[in-house]
Design a protein around this nucleic acid. Sequence first.
RNA 1: UGCCGCUUAGCUCAGUCGGUAGAGCAAGUGACUGUUAAUCACUGGGUCGUAGGUUCGAGUCCUACAGCGGCAGCCA
Length: 463
Amino acid sequence: MDYRRSYIKQLFELAPGTEATAFGWVKTRRDSKGLSFVQLNDGSTFKDLQVIVDEGVVDPELLKKVTTGSCVAFNGVIVESPAAGQAVELKASSLEIFGEADPLTYPLQKKGATMEFLREKAHLRVRGNTFGAVFRVRNQLSQAVHQFFDKRGFHNIHTPIITASDCEGAGAMFQVTTALEHGADGYKLARKDPADDFFGKPSYLTVSGQLDAETLALGMTNVYTFGPTFRAENSSTSRHLAEFWMIEPEMAFCSLEGNMNLAEEFLRETIQHALDHCGPDLEFFNQRIEPELLKTLTHVVESGFERMTYTEAVKHLEASDENFEYPVSWGTDLQSEHERWLTEVKVGRPVILTDYPKEIKAFYMRLNDDGKTVRAMDVLAPRIGEIIGGSQREERLDVLERRILEAGLPIDAYWWYLDLRRFGSVPHAGFGLGFERLMMYVTGMKNIRDVIPYFRTPGNADF
RNA sequence: UGCCGCUUAGCUCAGUCGGUAGAGCAAGUGACUGUUAAUCACUGGGUCGUAGGUUCGAGUCCUACAGCGGCAGCCA
C-alpha cells in the first residue's frame, strides 16, 4: 500500500473500460435481486462512487460486511452507468475489507442526523456529506488566504501563541502556568510567586497577534498572521469559540481607506476561490443548508461593499421604524440587532462601518482630527454580523501615550510598542478576521462549532 | 454571566385530565434484474437525564442539579 494511488475524484475522470481500484468508507449498500449498489467515499470529492457488485462476483458473507461506516477497497472496471444519477460507476470484480463497522454499534446511520448529535460524534462526522464538504471548503479557503496575500507581496509571519504581555486588552485570557499541580484532591499551588513560574511572570495564550504583527510590519512593510487565537470569555453563542483561527494583516504606509480596500478584496477573492474550487460542496450547502447561499455569495463577489461612518449609521438607525430592543444614540455601541438591520435590511450586502467614538474602541486606533472618533472599521455581513474588525493604528507617540493613560493601562508594559513610534514610525493599518466566521459565511452553516473539526467552548474540550 | 427552551427506543419526536409507553426513520430477516435519503413485508428494541418531593399512584405536577440548544453581553 502506498499513498500514490487514485482518489475517487480521479476515478470519475477515467475512460470507461479502464481497470481501477477504489478505496474508501461505505456510505450505504443497497441490495437488489442479482446485484448490490455500494456508495463509496474517500473524502476527495463530494460525490460518492457507485460500485456495482453483481451476484456471485464476491463471497456473499464478505459482501455482508460492507456496511455503513466500514472501510473497503473494490477492484473493478470503470463503466458508463446505465441509470441516471451518475455518468460512470465501478463494476466490481473483487473486494477487500480493511475495517468492519458493526451496524448495531456504529453510531452514525445513513440517514440524516442533527448537527447537535453529530457534535457528540465529532470523530466520525467527517464521513458524512455535510462535514466532508465543510472541511474541503475549509482547506480551500485556507489555501486562498495564503494565495491572496502572497500575490500582493505580504510576508506570512508567525507570532507567538504564548505571550507574557497581558496588555492586549482584547478579552479574557487563558493563563499558562506550571505553578499549579493537579492531583486527586484538585489543584494545588506549587509556586506562589509569579517570578518563580515558568516564564518568570504571568503568561497567557494569545488573544491577538496584532501588536507583534505591527512590529514586523514596521520593517517588512506588509505582513500577515494566520494562526490559533484564544479567548477565555464565558460566551456560549453560535458565533464564538474559545479557540479559533484568526487572520491578521498589518500594513505600513497604509491608511484606513487602504485597509478597507484590502478587507473588501480579501472577502471577494477568497469567496471567488471557493466558488471556483468547491462547486459541488457549495451546491450541496445551497440545497440542504442555506437556500440563498450561492445567490448571496455571487452577489458579494460582484457588487461592492457599502461604506458608511458610525455617525451615518446611527442616523439611519434613528430614522428607521424598526422597534429595537435597545435604543440608539450617538456614543453608544451598536447592538447585534442594529448591525443586523444595517447589513440585512438597510443595505442588503456587506457594509463597512468606520470612525467610531473613541470611547467604545481600543486605545491603539488612530484619533481623528475631531478628537472624538477613531479610524476604526467593522465589516458586517448578512447572516453572521461582524466578520472583520480593524483600524488605522495611532502612529503619533504623544497621542498614543495619552490614550494609553486615558484607558488606565500600565504604560510601562508597552515600552516596545511605543518604541515603534519613537523610531521610524509611519502610518499603518490592519485588521483581524475570524476564519470560522468566514467559513460560516461561505458554507451557510449556522453554528460556528460545525465549521472547525473539534470545537473548544466553555465546558467542552472533547476529542 | 443573564434570560428562555429542551432532555422518552440507536436517531427525530408524540404521549390528552396524573392511572406502568407510541410513531417514523435506523437496525435485523426476507422479497424485488438498476437502486441512488430505494421500495414492500415481518421482527427485535425503553431504569422516560439525575436526586429529592407531592400523591393510593408521576413520563406527566413541584424543587434542586447536570447536560444540550437558542438569544443577549463580550468580540473575530
